[in-house]
Amino acid sequence: MSPGRLLALAVLVALAAAPFVPMGGMRQYVLHVVIQIFIWSFIGQAWSLMGRFGLVSLGHGAFLGVGAYTTTLLWNFYGLTPWLGVVAAVLLAMLLAFVVAYPCSRFGITGHYFALVTLAVGEVIRLLLIAERDWTGGSLGVTLRAPGSDASLLAIQYADKRVFYYGGLALWLAGLWVWARVDRSMARSAMEAIGEDETAAASVGIHVTRFKLGITMLSAGLTAIGGVAYAQYIAYVNPETLAGIGVSLRIVFAVVLGGMYVLLGPTVGTALTIALSEYLRVVFGVKFIGMAETIYGLLLVIFIIFLPAGIYGSVAALLRRRRVPAAAPA
């Protein structure tokens, strides 16, 4: 077994065993932070499927919100289990992605203009969620209806965080798998060609619209699953945390920070941003209101300027450069 695989296996074993390691009274808190990292890394991976090919979306909150609210409302009003609700959520998010991306692709709305369109879509969904308050609870959000005595599995609601820990771990691994599959597919070379020059890509026979739509809908569908996972875990949905500019930009920052062209980039970025905001929150607490956010923002700006390939992306490139001369015969 190669050292890389061995390391990956060791990390997996450690992650699988982690919830049973004695941590004193910290267990619940640590689990909570790690579950969040799993779910948001998954969402970051979904975002980077588009972002790495130049399809920068500043409105992924729209897909998160559609996903989370679809399962929540179906459960609360019709008692439909989220296991089925998630299918509806994914289909709805993909439909929304299609409705947004198809005209953009047809009329050549790319680059910054595409980013602005997605930004608007994210806001539209947030405003819709607030406006439809009879259903959605408006800006106060909705709590997931508690299940009957032994219907936890049906409702995907558990008091024990370890269930969500393993669920999140599985989700994160599935996201890595999808990312790696796309990375090795023809879609990757097609999307890279499209990212460089759409006209040239069309001239070699690449169906530009189909590939762009495909990758956008894949990204949207996965993001919706992430939204569902988060909603099930927190058992409460709210337009501010699951739609709109704030959450959309947090996804983008995390991925850009970690590096969107490498497999583990979104994970590293998400882990760092969540750890950082937790740390700043603990340190500053209720003193200096807004200080944590300010430092957070400043650090992001610094990282984006000086490490454009992301932290993990830059480190990985550095390691590769070191390894190559070492491997060559002297």
Partner: peptide
């Protein structure tokens, strides 16, 4: 010409055989 400037010569040729 409309090449893919950031891709290598070999990658450009590979893209030509995309179908």
């Amino acid at each position: 010409r409309r090449l893919f400037p950031a891709l290598t010569v070999a990658e450009n040729l590979r893209m030509g055989a995309f179908l």
